[in-house]
């Protein structure tokens, strides 16, 4: 079984090809190159290094969000079109869960997060080797997230390149229970994405058309519009 994994949900990029559970080739990069330019050549490169043609791929998985709207959409568009073009199933995996998988060997509570700007974050909280969900992926003010984590009264392992933005605050609220993983584990890897996808049931090929990103946040224009509607009702 050959998998192609695509991760472009935030600034880092990762593409991997995994055959029967073994990683054949993987690209992980965190450079200032927009995914619209970098992702497709990276897919070509990884497949070429792995010696795999598109037709040989059995399933595609993608980091479905949350993250940068544009980043998530580029990955989902690439993955969706790829899966449809080769007529193979597409599996979506949470971008936060895939990142948390970097430290799944630990028993600690794992909190993967991405900066959503203005003191907001996308966060997902997982537990132990099975990556059981403790707090489902969501969008929140950093203070709200830290309150929830404090209530757990356990050490929390934070993972992600954006953790440093909020680490002072994390220590302030959680004290010694706030832990940041080594920076070598902060980048998402498409091979972890594939490892998670492999545990899921394969959707039908027809389901690919309806596949959409998990933004975890409604568009600003829509939020404003809903606010206006509410005002009108009062």
């Amino acid at each position: 079984m050959i998998w192609l994994g695509i991760e472009t949900a935030n600034a880092p990029l990762s593409i991997a090809v995994v055959k029967d559970g073994k990683v054949l080739a993987e690209v992980v990069q965190n450079i200032k190159l927009t995914h619209s330019v970098g992702a497709m050549p990276a897919i070509e490169e990884v497949l070429s290094k792995a010696g795999i043609t598109p037709a040989e791929i059995d399933a595609v998985t993608v980091s479905e969000g949350p993250g940068s709207y544009t980043g998530v959409r580029i990955g989902v568009t690439l993955a969706k079109t790829f899966a449809w073009a080769i007529q193979k199933p597409l599996v979506g995996v949470s971008s936060l869960k895939a990142l948390a998988a970097n430290v799944k060997m630990s028993d600690a509570v794992i909190c993967a997060l991405f900066d959503a700007r203005r003191q907001n974050v996308y966060a997902g909280v997982y537990n132990g080797a099975q990556l059981n969900t403790v707090i489902e992926d969501y969008h929140d003010h950093i203070d709200g997230l830290l309150e929830k984590l404090k209530a757990l009264q356990k050490p929390v392992l934070f993972v992600g390149t954006d953790v440093e933005v909020y680490f002072d605050k994390m220590q302030e609220v959680l004290g010694e229970n706030a832990l940041h993983v080594p920076s070598t584990l902060d980048l998402p890897r498409a091979s972890e994405l594939i490892a998670i996808a492999q545990q899921q049931k394969l959707p039908s090929i027809e389901a690919t058309h309806a596949f959409v990103p998990q933004y975890r946040r409604i568009a600003e224009a829509e939020a404003n519009w809903l606010k206006e509607q509410k005002k009108g009702q009062l």
Partner: peptide, 23 residues
């Protein structure tokens, strides 16, 4: 309802439709 094209909404719709229109 927005009185014009909202770029973010437009992008979201394109992702939903793109493989359907190709097929």
């Amino acid at each position: 309802r927005f009185g014009g094209v909202v770029p973010e909404i437009a992008s979201r719709h394109h992702v939903e439709q793109v493989t359907l229109v190709l097929e």
